[in-house]
Amino acid sequence: MESTMIEIGPALAVAVVLFVVIGSVAAWAGRTGLEREIPWASIRAALQLIVLALVIGYVADRLWLVGVFVVVMTTTASWAAARRLAQRSNPQAEKTRATVRDALWCAVPVALPPVLLVVCLLAVGVVRPNGLSIIPVVGIFLGNAMTIVGLAGRRAHDELDGRHGEVEAALSLGFADYPARMMVCRQAAATALNPSLDQTRTIGLVTIPGAFVGMVLGGAEPWEAGVMQVFVSTGILACGAIALIVTTALVAADRL
């Protein structure tokens, strides 16, 4: 099988295995404690993509199954964000288990912004009412919101732990608990949006996004792919900004 970008065959399989080995060895050499996570994440990715390839064709034209698929996606993303938050700042320490309560609170910033935005886009006709349109758009927005929630939550908690004395000082001056905590953690949590901002600023100069490349390879005009990528990038920033402020508020309120 041939591709305009890569040759799919035995050599590609060897390259993928080498990527996993190199990543694991680098993580081990750097004493990150993540050398086992890299192969496990890679295996999961491969299995999940195989299942997706088998399922999406059947699901695409059945809206109720699309809805079920979106629920599975949002549940998985919320649980992943909750697990990331439970680890806090020390990945080498024994992992604290995330609870169902944690996952439910994480679902507010992780799942609600992408789902609500896509529902609005469906209502105005920007996104077509079929699985091949809904699932990728929700997935892109959801994945970025999940990452931002994990980063923002951990940065906010780390800042609150490190500057606990400032919170106590604010309380002694008459501040309520929520504004005192918010003053300390807001700016640190805001850094979680920086990777998305940097990627958007450098599109076309440093990064060539997957959506753009995929549309061009699929036969779309470059300008059409560019418009699609602007839609995706601005949507990511919108979801990310909402996820950021909601996560920060939940941490300040001691809900996450």
Score class of each variant (00 low, 15 high):
L160H: 01
L49A: 13
R186M: 07
T4G: 09
A13K: 02
F231S: 14
L117Y: 12
T75V: 12
A152P: 01
I50V: 13
L63G: 08
V68C: 13
I148F: 01
T247D: 01
V118A: 05
E166T: 08
V25S: 08
R97V: 11
S196D: 08
A180P: 00
P209N: 09
Q92D: 10
P222V: 09
A190R: 13
R154W: 00
V51I: 13
P179L: 03
L237P: 01
A253I: 01
L193I: 15
K95Y: 07
Q187H: 14
E168L: 11
R163H: 15
A27G: 03
L112F: 11
N130P: 00
A111C: 08
L197F: 07
D254L: 09
V21C: 07
G153Y: 01
T4P: 02
D158F: 06
M73F: 06
A225G: 09
G218W: 00
L117K: 05
S89I: 04
L193M: 14
S42K: 05
S172F: 02
P113M: 05
E221P: 02
A111T: 07
P136Y: 03
C185F: 02
E94T: 13
A145K: 01
I208S: 14
P113F: 00
T247R: 00
I140L: 12
E2V: 09
L12S: 10
T4A: 13
P209M: 07
A41Y: 02
G131R: 01
G235I: 02
